[in-house]
C-alpha cells in the first residue's frame, strides 16, 4: 500500500497533476478517496506503464485510452486462458495406479 506521494517519489518521472488526471479518467484505479488514495502493486506498475507509453512511446493522452482499453482486453483474455488451462489440468484423466 502506497500513498500518492509515495508513488510519485518511487516513479520519479510523473507529475502529481498528471497522475491525478489519470485517476479521474479511470486509467489508474487506486483505492480510497481523492485525499487518501492507496496504491497497491498493480496500480504502481500501471502508472509506470502509462509513463512508458507517454514518454518512451510518445502516445498522447488522446490516444492513451485506446491503447489501455486494448491492453486491458488482452490481459482479460490471458487471465481467462490461464484459468481455463488450470481447469483443464484439474479435470484431465489421472493415471490409474499400478
Amino acid at each position: 500500500m502506497m500513498t500518492i506521494d509515495g508513488v510519485i517519489a518511487e516513479i520519479g518521472q510523473v507529475e502529481r497533476a498528471d497522475l491525478e488526471r489519470w485517476i479521474s479518467e479511470g486509467w489508474v484505479r487506486p483505492q480510497g478517496e481523492p485525499n487518501a488514495y492507496r496504491f497497491v502493486e498493480i496500480d504502481v506498475a500501471r502508472v509506470r506503464l502509462i509513463c512508458t507509453l507517454r514518454v518512451d512511446m510518445e502516445v498522447n493522452e488522446a490516444t492513451l485510452p485506446v491503447v489501455l482499453s486494448l491492453l486491458d482486453q488482452l490481459y482479460d483474455t490471458r487471465r481467462q486462458m490461464r484459468a481455463l488451462i488450470e481447469r483443464l489440468r484439474e479435470i484431465s484423466p489421472s493415471d490409474a495406479p499400478d
Binding site: 484505479r29 498493480i42 506498475a45 506503464l49 490481459y75 482479460d76 487471465r79 481467462q80 490461464r82
Partner: peptide, 27 residues
C-alpha cells in the same frame, strides 16, 4: 529494472483493470 505491468495484470490482481469494469463477472 522492475518486473513490469504484465506480471500483475496476468495475476488475479489484474481483475482490477478488467475492461468491463472491476465489478463485472469475469466468466
Amino acid at each position: 529494472a522492475h518486473s513490469g505491468y504484465r506480471a500483475h495484470a496476468e495475476s488475479s490482481a489484474g481483475q482490477r483493470y478488467r475492461h468491463a469494469g472491476p465489478e463485472a463477472d469475469e466468466w
